[in-house]
Design a protein around this nucleic acid. Structure first.
Lengths: 343, 343
DNA sequence: TTGAAAGCGCTAACAA
DNA sequence: TTGTTAGCGCTTTCAA
């Protein structure tokens, strides 16, 4: 308790103080008590306790070539999705003695590449990545050497496992529901889709709903932090107003966060003239009323599933190649789209 | 580019392929070109390039007893303060080849202790911690062995450097300004202060402003996520309404986030009957109007300063013991407290 | 039930 | 200018 700590303390010190060889101490450290006298075992235990000895993980790793570090590479650590993912992973992995290295790509492919290479050179034991899709070959290759799991965004990379939510399906459901609720038009607001699967899938879900319901798709393109594009979209809302009530459905919470003030400025009655819905759960959702309808992603479950797969892969059980694991999202209806409903 | 990577590649392979000894390769890796023929240097460079060789940091660390990992321990990775801090540290440190291990205490002392011990055993090279103050002895001790910097919250731990903002001073300024703006009373809303220096200092600043302005302090205690306490505070707002306009000033953005909807429900005119101000910059600040007056902390600067100190400490330049570095915050006035002003 | 000895991949005296 | 050698702290045969 009050003694001095690892400061240069090695297995040799423990061995000497216990009057055994370092081999025996090593056995103790690795829990191989099968063939060890109770006496020795107890003695070593006491010495370790007293000396406050902790094995040097670097030295341990050097042999087995493992660092007990797992990398999680996300687009932006302040995005609620990323935060929740990191937390879920951290909880699940730290209890197994793994530490998390958190990195941000900012959504930039070259930065992502640098990070991947650096982490790879660092010999992390596994990677969890929300990729932009610009380094798929490299990731496929790395996946042959260590567990790699793609989260949130999925690409058909051979050998690489993905965990995603049912973006398309739930986007279709929400859109359909909005039409059924009585909104004649839905303005779907998205960023440039690029090669990002989530954006593509959510858009597709919306488009399918339009088709099934015989409505003309109506898409607002926003570049985040580009005020002009945001104002432009906000103004365009009025275009089809004469056709009846309309809904704005944003492809993620960050878009809504930027668009929302401009929607409020439009002076339309929510949910009567204008319904509002979004993918993701904005963390400020409680602050405004009427409550926006949103799609809640199962981020915790994604993190937990990912952690478990990594752990089992690290134990030798190989990851299924090209397996895409889908965990469904949930629609949380709010008063902001309750045109005829009572909620 | 297309070649196979580190997969079991060692310095020995490079040495053999270059026809030199591993020592020479090691020299190359460590940039000691002073005494090396250009020929050798070039040759090794080519081989490394071709083989895609990267030195194993574990093995490198084992010698120098350094992991090139720096731990940042925060209360909660979803708090904007923590996010910004992590990002600033990450940017500043990763360019120097350090990786960040991010850990969350949840504000719990025992958890903080576990994390500290684990990181210590892991042999991280340095620690940055937003501590709860329950492990000061341990931190003081650890600080004798590696750079330790306290951020946000400060304690008088010998040998340990702290970086904070001028909580008391800026809190005093804001409170004074609110009084001067014409608010007769300020309800200062805070969590239990416990031993947390930031809370204490912000409260003190408010109290001093009360004293200087001859007003009776008025404090609302909230336990976050305890609806009862929040509602209670919200209701208490009306108590002194008969004395004239009043302001609510919350000690941090999370409190305001929870309190704000209840304040709106009060049906008072902002800023005429009720002014609203807060410490911290809520990330939803743009979403509401009138704009709340807030105190912006220099989080980036805190992170940058911290990273620089750590880097220089790691280079041998010792940290000044018990140095407290203060970086001032800024008051950003908003219309929500513009009682007579024009903004 | 225990230990000696050979390495893991790298660095750094010390020699040459 | 280069190489030999002895470790860093630990794990793991192989023997005893």
């Amino acid at each position: 308790m009050t003694d001095t700590p690892h400061k240069g303390l090695t297995i040799r010190d423990v061995a000497e103080a216990s009057g055994v060889s370092i081999t025996t101490v090593s056995r103790y450290l690795n829990g191989r008590f099968e063939s060890m006298s109770d006496n020795t075992r107890r003695k070593i235990g006491e010495v370790i306790e007293q000396l406050h000895y902790r094995p040097n993980p670097l030295a341990q790793g050097l042999k087995g070539n493992q660092t007990r570090m797992i990398a999680v590479i996300v687009v932006n650590i302040s995005y609620p999705f990323c935060v929740s993912l990191i937390r879920a992973l951290s909880n699940a992995l730290s209890s197994s003695g793994y530490n998390l290295i958190v990195c941000e790509t900012g959504g930039r492919g070259e930065r992502e590449q640098d990070i991947i290479e650096s982490l790879y050179a660092q010999r992390v034991d596994a990677m969890v990545i929300q990729t932009n899709g610009d380094n798929n070959l490299r990731l496929a290759h790395i996946a042959t050497e260590m567990p790699v799991i793609l989260v949130d965004r999925q690409f058909d990379i051979p050998e690489v496992t993905s965990v995603i939510t049912n973006n398309e399906e739930v986007s279709f459901s929400l859109s359909t529901q909005l039409f059924q609720d009585g909104y004649h038009n839905i303005l779907y607001v998205t960023e440039q889709v690029a090669s990002i699967s989530t954006r593509m899938e959510r858009l597709t879900g919306y488009l399918q709903a339009c088709e099934k319901n015989h409505r003309t798709p109506w898409i607002g393109w926003i570049t985040r932090d580009d005020l002009t594009s945001i104002e432009h979209v906000a103004r365009s809302v009025t275009e089809r107003l004469h056709q009846g009530p309309l809904a704005v459905y944003t492809g993620n919470a960050l878009l809504l966060e930027q668009l929302y003030p401009h929607l409020r400025a439009l002076d339309l009655v929510i949910p009567h003239d204008l319904g509002i819905a979004t993918f993701d759960e904005p963390d400020w959702i409680q602050l405004i009323s009427p409550r926006i309808t949103y799609i809640r992603q199962p981020i915790d479950d994604i993190g937990i599933w990912t952690a478990q797969r990594i752990l089992s892969a690290l134990k030798g059980e190989p990851l299924t190649p090209l397996a895409i694991h889908t965990i469904p999202s949930t629609i949380i209806p709010g008063a902001a789209t309750a045109l005829y409903r009572g909620n």
